Simulated scan of single mutants.
Amino acid sequence: MTESSQTRRDDRIPVGISACLQGREVRHDGGHKHSRYCTEVLSRYFRFRSLCPEMGAGLSTPRPAMHLVDTEQGVRLRATRGDKDFTDLMEGFVAGALEGLADLRGFVLMAKSPSCGMERIRVYREDGEVGRRDASGLFAGALMERYPLMPVEEEGRLNDDRLRENFVERVFIYDDWCRLREAGLTPGGLIEFHSRHKFQLLAHCEATYRRLGPMLADLKNRPLDEIADDYIAAFMPAMAKRISPGAHVNTMLHLVGFLRDQLEQADLTLIHEQIEAYRRGEVPLVVPMTLLRGAQSKVGQPYLARQRYLNPYPDALGLRNRV
């Protein structure tokens, strides 16, 4: 997947984003939380659609700071000072907005927000003390419940090299899945999807890899849509798991097995040396992966040529340089 193929037309992947991360002055204090990584790097491949739930609910900026409060009526969104309650406004907006987000392939959220925070949001007791720190913001929680397969990440967590790489990889895979469904599901299309992503799945979760292959072995024993729903419901959570260096090594060695009979011994030795160097933490993943891609290109191995594990996203993002 080259940069030119992604950017020659505006076929960038549609991804949602909290509006403040695009530099829009929509926060309660009239400020923003501009993410240059999103607007200057990811925007070359993602067509961001911004949304601020609080502004969408009809609130102005500046506005009172808000937090979540546990009450007898459930969790409420209230002003941090005084008892003004914004829950009904927010829930009304969310209920109307979610339907229009079905075409998105991912969402980047603002952390710590009582509306957009993905996780670890504080919920206060009515006496003003923190009761727990395990909630999602009202919009974020509803988004993840409505679209459980959609990759969702907080902007701050994108500073972590592995979390950033994982999120981008999942967005490209989810986009591939959505395109498959939009084009019309067929048995051949489902098998092809699994075939091109199987080594990514192996790296993320070998147990799921071993379970999903047999699920597709007989596509006539159940309705195809039912099989596809069960398949992707297991596939996407597996892809959210972090890949250990050992899992990458195991997967790369599987790929080497397809090349062994076609490469000269010197080439094989070099690939094995760099895989071991990666295992020891001496080189980043991009080093052995580049050798594998070069070897595949050299011998023209057709099965490996289809594997997205070798090219999961545009090289220009440099994501494997740091993992």
Rank of each mutant, 00 (worst) to 15 (best):
E129V: 11
E129F: 09
E129A: 13
V130W: 13
V130G: 09
G131P: 02
G131E: 10
R133N: 15
R133M: 15
R133W: 12
R133Y: 09
D134Y: 14
D134G: 14
D134L: 14
A135L: 13
S136F: 02
S136D: 06
G137F: 04
G137A: 06
G137L: 10
G137P: 03
L138F: 11
L138V: 12
L138P: 14
L138A: 12
F139C: 12
F139I: 03
A140P: 06
G141A: 12
A142F: 11
A142V: 08
A142Y: 07
A142H: 11
L143Q: 05
L143R: 04
L143K: 01
M144S: 14
M144E: 12
M144L: 14
M144R: 15
E145L: 14
E145M: 15
R146F: 08
Y147E: 11
Y147I: 12
Y147R: 11
P148I: 07
L149A: 09
L149F: 13
L149G: 09
L149M: 08
L149D: 09
M150G: 13
M150E: 07
M150C: 13
P151G: 03
P151V: 03
V152T: 11
V152Q: 01
E153W: 04
E153R: 04
E153A: 10
E154V: 02
E154G: 01
E155S: 09
E155Q: 09
R157D: 07
R157A: 10
L158K: 01
L158N: 00
L158A: 02
N159C: 12
N159P: 01
N159A: 14
N159S: 15
N159M: 13
N159K: 11
D160Q: 06
D161S: 09
D161W: 02
D161L: 08
R162S: 15
L163T: 14
L163W: 11
L163F: 08
L163P: 01
L163G: 03
L163Q: 14
R164D: 00
R164A: 00
R164Q: 01
E165K: 05
E165I: 05
E165L: 06
E165P: 01
N166S: 08
N166M: 11
N166P: 01
N166G: 06
V168E: 00
V168K: 01
V168Q: 01
E169M: 03
R170N: 13
R170V: 09
V171G: 00
V171L: 06
V171Y: 07
F172N: 00
F172A: 00
F172V: 01
I173T: 02
I173N: 00
I173S: 00
Y174Q: 02
Y174S: 02
Y174W: 06
D175M: 00
D175S: 09
D175H: 15
D176M: 03
D176L: 10
D176A: 08
W177T: 04
W177K: 10
W177A: 01
W177Q: 07
W177F: 12
W177S: 06
W177I: 08
C178L: 15
R179K: 13
L180Y: 10
L180P: 04
L180N: 12
R181M: 05
E182D: 05
E182T: 03
A183Q: 05
A183K: 04
A183N: 12
A183E: 12
G184A: 10
G184C: 05
G184L: 09
L185D: 02
L185N: 07
L185M: 11
L185A: 04
